[in-house]
Amino acid sequence: MNNIITIATKEFRGFFHSPVAYIVLTVFLLTTGWLFFSSFFLIGEASLRNFFALMPLMLVIFSPAVTMRLLAEERKSGTFELIATMPLKDRDIILGKYLSACALLICGLFFTVPYALSVATIGVIDFGPVLSGYVGTLALILALAAIGILASALAKNQISALILALALGFTLYLVGAFTFFLPESLGSFLAYISLTTHFENFTRGIIDTKDIIYYLSIAFLALYLGVLTLKARRNN
């Protein structure tokens, strides 16, 4: 556990050594804020539902920007050899990096709290859906950061890590959109693995354990594959 925290702390600080963290956070807040508030006054409803509806797409785009560097860059610069020959388990490395990415994304999420508060000052807001929205977004972050870590573990450099993570994220994001054209059995399966269908409940104010389990399973699977990737690298 100590190892994981040591690595997570180092990586979290590392985000702020370069402009990456600042840029990602700023652009994330600007984009979500603009997309939300530009239609907010037209709809004229004191609800954050449209804000949370943006989250899957926003996080599919922004989380790879946070995770791409974490393992791919170590491999490219050779520092992976340094860390891989320390007395660490593969999962310490993966989980440490994962936690740092989650922490940064959660920071970004935290900075959206003023959005909710400002909406609350304008009208009467139902805090139930706001809470469920935040819980859902948190679950989404846990899943997408894990996918980003897996991509970064597989890729040889940051750019391919970014592209791979975007591809994986968009696949899971879009897969639910085409179910209409497909046979029922395949359609319902695709709907089940889609990031968006599981998010709908959260935006409506429902916290369903099934949805949470879905996101956590994605996170677990991706991280497990990440650990296997490191293991396989020793043998190749």
Binding site: K10, G14, H17, S18, S77, G78, T79, E81, L82, T85
Partner: peptide
């Protein structure tokens, strides 16, 4: 073991 890999790869930003 203490290990110094070839070309001393280190974290440049630290």
């Amino acid at each position: 073991i203490g290990y110094l890999p070839e070309n001393a790869p280190l974290y440049d930003e630290m």
